[in-house]
Design a protein around this nucleic acid. Structure first.
Lengths: 252, 252
DNA sequence: CGGAAAATTGACTTACATCAAACTCAGTGG
DNA sequence: CCACTGAGTTTGATGTAAGTCAATTTTCCG
């Protein structure tokens, strides 16, 4: 059915694929020598409110990052995949719970050690700073999505950015595996599970996507999807992470 | 009318009031010697997409931080007040436009210089890191608000956190000046201006707030408001900014 | 194969948006 | 000092996107 299309998966995708940029080197230094740990689907790496003592690098698998409100509602802030580093953005305690969706392999590093290493090495320091900036950028993007897009647009945005996370060319059709449940998606987009389902069905009906089982999707017309999403993909660029030094409008 | 209540204002509120914490010292070092600049209401300090060459510290006044979507809708990401530092969270280009709501006094620092200073001083480095973490925390909090709260709850949250920003005691009534327009608030909360107005009227009708002119509000029953907001205030704690070193669940 | 969790679809309700019309207020100039 | 003005705000009438409640159907895992 999808014979001629390159199959991609959100599982097992490297963050900075097989290059040797400063970032990659920094990660190697940080986590390279540490032992790999495992956790079963459904278990938490850490919980919102726990003392934030460790930083985690996902090696494979997928986690949901969420907060539970006092009234019981759940807000899924985002998802973590292979290559992602968790637990940098918080201060004393973790801001979210990180729960394995699939079995997850990961490595972890004491935050004290990270701090020490950052103090030693400019490279590591700028790696940490880059991670933080990335998180700011992603979060603000999601604020825009939740605040200004309608349900259908939000879902389109989610699908396109999921595809973008996994491969480069954002114009050709993509096959992707959504490891999370419909409820995870709903809680991430500020919608109900029923609305997510209905909209998935609608996107299928009008030919923008196709599906194979619960978790496999084909985004058949990326441009239409991107349009639907309000051309909002991008903005969370993930390339260089050094401070710019040029001066534009304001004299130095 | 409000004789016995301490009048507070979002304008002119210092970030870390008159203490001598490491943070405050770091700011002094950063901006202390720089000249003060001025900008009229309605003008922009910087625009989304501009090369991010400077970091700004607001000295007085209020700015709105927003992004315009391709379809013309506006997302107000947040507001900046005296003591806030803008332009740290972005990388090559500013992520948002920062536009003066009132006349604004501010100081600015070339990002290159900031980077150099951070490389020199651990204190300045941890100040930058703290600012970034604060921004992550605030943004994620807002994701929760937009994704999970209903209109009335969002407005209550906005009012309570505006009061919290300006003074300590979160239980007693607060008088506060909202310098932004209803439209700013609406675009910040993902609502329409009409909904914001109607809900303001409703909160007045049921006695949770009172108003004096367009911009002055009294939050008469903070606890009820905080309840309405889903007890969601806090979580964006703004105290210490050093990395924790304790290990809790995971052995080092 | 059986069973439970997840997903889907339908019927109905509602919270918020939209459209439209006043009203308020702060600033300006006569 | 007051009338005029336009931006900002408020309120009302109505529409609609998304939520809620309630069955089914599908999937997948032991």
């Amino acid at each position: 059915m999808y014979a001629s299309q390159k199959v991609i998966s959100l599982r097992g995708m490297p963050l900075a694929a097989s290059d040797s940029s400063p970032t990659t080197v920094a990660i190697e230094n940080l986590f390279g020598s540490l032992p790999t740990d495992k956790i079963a689907a459904g278990r938490a790496l850490f919980r919102e409110g726990d003392a934030a003592s460790q930083v985690f690098e996902i090696e494979s698998g997928c986690v949901r990052l969420y907060r539970i409100l006092p009234n019981g509602r759940r807000a899924v802030i985002g998802f973590g995949y292979a290559g992602d580093v968790l637990g940098v953005g918080c201060k004393g305690t973790y801001l979210v719970t990180a729960e394995a969706i699939t079995p997850v392999r990961f490595r972890r590093l004491a935050r004290g050690r990270l701090q020490a290493m950052a103090a030693e090495s400019d490279l590591i320091q700028s790696f940490v700073t880059a991670k933080l900036r990335e998180e700011v950028s992603t979060s603000q993007q999601h604020i825009v999505v939740l605040g200004q897009l309608r349900a259908e647009e939000r879902l389109a945005y989610f699908l396109v950015s999921a595809a973008r996370r996994a491969r480069q060319d954002p114009s050709r059709p993509a096959v992707l595996e959504l490891l999370m449940t419909r409820l995870d998606i709903a809680d991430h987009l500020g919608l109900t599970i029923e609305t997510v389902c209905r909209l998935m069905s609608k996107l299928k009906r009008i030919g923008l996507i196709a599906s194979q089982g619960r978790h496999w999707l084909v985004l058949r017309r990326m441009n239409d999807l991107r349009n639907l999403a309000g051309e909002l993909v991008d903005a969370g660029d993930a390339g260089q992470f050094t401070l710019m030094q040029s001066s534009a409008r304001w004299p130095s």
